[in-house]
Write a protein that binds this DNA or RNA. Structure first.
Lengths: 186, 186
DNA sequence: GTCGTACTGAAACGGTCGTTTCAGTATGGC
DNA sequence: GCCATACTGAAACGACCGTTTCAGTACGAC
């Protein structure tokens, strides 16, 4: 029952992840993927058990990428954290990851059970948890803190959706900034 | 080149739309769909030209559903409009439509060209346009109005994402309300 | 009655899918 | 040398896909 990774598995997962960032998960199929990353359907199934197992591994990787960034954020007041989060979300190199994120999120709303099942809820909790820590560090444990962080998360997610569809960085950044100014700064 | 609808086409589109609201668009396939709505792949292709044509018609229907609601909103200050929009988004009967909406949005970020292509951008503009009208009616044409409506849209969309994944109506409604209170009320 | 338009059924076509079968190779420990 | 472990290639399997072919039926117009 061990799910431990072999070196080859890690290597192919990384390559598949790169492929998926460019091509999306929706129409992923083993033969084209394998061809592109120098492998074969046979090997992918051997290493990941099934296509579903591979997708699970890919989504876990996406969530890990996201979490790795979140946990390395410097401490600071919520307003500053929010600003840094938005800078990260709006950075062009992260575009592909975030499109993949939206795709996983959308699928998770309908595919229950399945490899996508808890993806949406999980990322909501990841982010809310991070923001809650920041609020605690600020000494803010008022009952309004939950609404505050839920709202900030909504602003960031909603702005991200807008950005991914329209690309209007300036318009959307101004809107995010408008909200950040209502937050405690220290 | 006429795209005019025949009665039978309208009828089958309505049935297919009902089916898709329950089953999602991602794995839609003609045979199961046709079986469920009492038709056949042959007829669907005859009427819609191709599967892509059918999907286009379904997405147009979803956007029409949404717009029909938006345009029948009573006039009023932005704060009230925002509150009514959230009430609509959070209403359980609209859940299926909104999940479909997210699915279309996600696909539109990657499927260019294709039936999904402009879905995301279109709905952003639908909503921003509506909010701009409300602001004008309030006599607000300040340069900050654009940031205000972009922010309100982000709040609503982000809150919707949260709601669809977690179902925590109370927590999220409190967050939305928190933002609405910062808006002009008359 | 004949014609055009709208719709339909059954079956097949070529293709892709995830997965399996069977047969390997390469490597390192003993 | 031997054996287990890790990985791989080629080919096939059965299922399902969107689409096409061919052959209709129903019906109102004239």
């Amino acid at each position: 029952m061990t799910e431990l990774d072999s070196p080859r598995k890690r290597e192919l997962l990384a390559a598949a992840y790169r492929y998926v960032l460019g091509n999306g998960l929706a129409d992923l199929s083993l033969r084209p993927l394998a061809r592109e990353i120098g492998s074969s359907p046979r090997v992918l199934l051997f290493l990941f058990g099934s296509k579903e197992g591979l997708i699970r591994a890919l989504l876990a990787q996406a969530r890990k990428d996201e979490l790795r960034y979140l946990t390395q954020l410097r401490d600071g007041p919520v307003r500053v954290t929010g600003r840094e989060l938005w800078r990260w979300l709006a950075a062009p190199p992260h575009r592909a990851l975030l499109v993949l994120w939206v795709e996983g999120y959308a699928r998770s709303l309908l595919d229950d059970p399945g490899p996508w099942a808890s993806f949406g809820r999980d990322t909501v909790n990841d982010w809310l948890g991070l923001l809650a820590e920041r609020q605690l560090a600020d000494g803010r444990i008022t009952p309004e803190a939950e609404a505050e962080r839920t709202l900030l998360l909504a602003v960031l997610r909603g702005a991200l959706l807008d950005l991914l569809a329209t690309g209007d960085v300036d318009r959307i950044t101004a809107a995010v900034e408008r909200h950040l100014r209502t937050l405690p700064s220290d």
